[in-house]
Design a protein around this nucleic acid. Structure first.
Length: 218
DNA sequence: GACCAGGCACATC
DNA sequence: GATGTGCATGGT
């Protein structure tokens, strides 16, 4: 298994797609909310849900935490799985209100490992959501591994079929400087790659990474 | 009308 | 430990 040339891949993606300006959120709380709402969901649907919250003046911790679950669900309905996600948002606001005085800054002041463990202990926050919050909201140098990342690395023969989240994250951590702007841009570029080329059904002609792996294409 | 989307928890084997 | 399933809306 040849290890992926992660620096060259980054250059190729940046050349192809340019800066992605992630995360599209106005506040750190909005980024956290978006990270939970986007689970298995297209971003356009998350935008509708966040717009509803904003128009209801509920995009702040006191309002989010106080709203009845069915009201929360009604606001975020366009994001899908709304009953599940309403409970997940509530679990997150409960953590903030209960352990951090309702202040995101206090949560985000934790060291990266502790922040990650704290987030993972919240019902409904798994590895990708925790790392997205750590990187894009807390601005800690944590690499976000998502389905696109696993797919393009597998397609090109750079990781084993059964490679785990932790193994893939370790690849990036080992080969790249721990830089928030770099990790931010890199993950966003991988999503751009996934949306444009590395689809579930193979469609890899003209892929900007063609020729870089052992088995580019399907 | 299937398939997919910036996952996760839970049940079952 | 691995695999399957429910959650649910909206775009292609």
């Amino acid at each position: 298994m040849r290890r992926p040339p992660l620096r060259a891949i980054y250059r190729a993606l940046f050349y192809e797609f340019g800066p992605q300006n992630w995360w599209p959120g106005r506040t750190r709380l909005e980024i956290c909310v978006g990270a939970i709402l986007t689970q298995n969901t297209a971003w356009t649907n998350v935008e509708r849900a966040i717009r509803n919250l904003r128009e209801a003046r509920a995009l702040n911790l006191p309002a989010l935490h106080a709203a009845p679950l069915n009201q929360l669900g009604a606001w975020i309905r366009p994001a899908g799985c709304f009953n599940v996600k309403a409970r997940r948002l509530r679990a997150f606001t409960t953590l903030l209100a209960g352990q951090f005085g309702g202040r995101l800054e206090k949560l985000f002041a934790l060291p990266a490992a502790e922040l990650r463990a704290t987030l993972l202990a919240v019902h409904g926050i798994g590895p990708e959501t925790a790392d997205s919050i750590a990187l894009y909201a807390a601005e800690q140098p944590v690499f976000v591994v998502d389905a696109y990342t696993q797919r393009f690395l597998r397609r090109h023969g750079w990781i084993a079929e059964q490679a785990t989240y932790a193994e893939i994250a370790a690849l990036f951590a080992a080969q790249l400087p721990a830089s928030v702007p770099l990790f931010n841009e890199y993950h966003a570029l991988i999503v751009a790659l996934g949306k444009n080329f590395c689809r579930p059904r193979p469609l890899c002609d003209k892929c900007p990474l063609a020729g870089m792996g052992l088995k580019p294409g399907p």
